[in-house]
């Protein structure tokens, strides 16, 4: 094929085009919209359930010695605030429509990805650990008055039960912190790979 006979524009426009169907695009739009609606509902249900659970526990405890107990109140507040903060930040960081789509240039896109990487780093190194620790602390504080009431026939009795309970809570916290660290590390590596590839493109 001789170059002076080739008309690139003509070859480019030669019909090889997939027939378009706007209905498929509308279907994708609906799928995206439903995903967003489901996510909002999931977050709303978690939020409402958390508040409902706290209120429900108080109503249930009203006629008991635990009503008005400082440990129970503090523990509930701690857990409730942690859950709300977590949901707020999760929703903010995991937007389904990345802003990057609208950036003008590769440089802007790299800047946005770098910002997202910093946020993920902050999330994995600081905030996730803070959430887990404060949530576990809230649960530990909340359940303390209940655990000390447990009758135990074993030697050492209540102290052993308390210690065992808090050790299990601690292990659960550790497992969650490790799991989250692993998950966020994967996301960060992916972002770093994208940033390097885009920098190479420039």
């Amino acid at each position: 094929m001789e170059s002076n006979q080739v008309n690139l524009e003509q070859l480019w426009a030669t019909p090889r085009v997939e027939h378009s169907d706007i209905k498929e695009v509308y279907q994708s739009i609906d799928t995206y919209r439903l995903k967003k609606v489901k996510m909002n509902w999931a977050l709303a249900i978690i939020g409402v359930s958390t508040i409902g659970w706290i209120i429900g526990i108080y109503i249930w405890l009203l006629d008991t010695e635990f009503a008005g107990n400082l440990w129970v109140i503090l523990g509930s507040l701690c857990c409730g605030i942690t859950m709300m903060l977590f949901m707020f930040n999760y929703y903010r960081l995991n937007s389904l429509m990345p802003e990057s789509i609208l950036t003008q240039s590769t440089s802007d896109y790299i800047a946005l990805l770098t910002k997202e990487k910093k946020q993920q780093l902050q999330l994995s190194k600081v905030w996730m650990n803070v959430y887990i620790v404060t949530l576990i602390t809230g649960i530990a504080i909340f359940t303390y008055p209940f655990i000390v009431k447990i009758d135990s026939a074993i030697v050492g009795g209540k102290n052993i039960v308390l210690m065992g309970y808090y050790i299990v809570l601690g292990i659960w916290a550790g497992v969650n912190m490790y799991g989250n660290k692993k998950m966020n590390t994967k996301k960060i590596i992916k972002l770093e790979q994208m940033i390097s590839s885009l920098q190479a493109i420039k």
């Binding site: 480019w12 090889r16 085009v17 997939e18 498929e24 695009v25 994708s28 739009i29």
Partner: peptide, 27 residues
């Protein structure tokens, strides 16, 4: 579609990119 096809040289992939583009346009 042609722009995407030029980029990925795969008809299904290009169609997906074109669809994703118009989903973003709509939103």
């Amino acid at each position: 579609y042609r722009l995407a096809l030029g980029y990925v040289n795969d008809a299904d992939w290009a169609k997906g990119i074109a669809q994703e583009t118009f989903v973003n346009v709509w939103n």
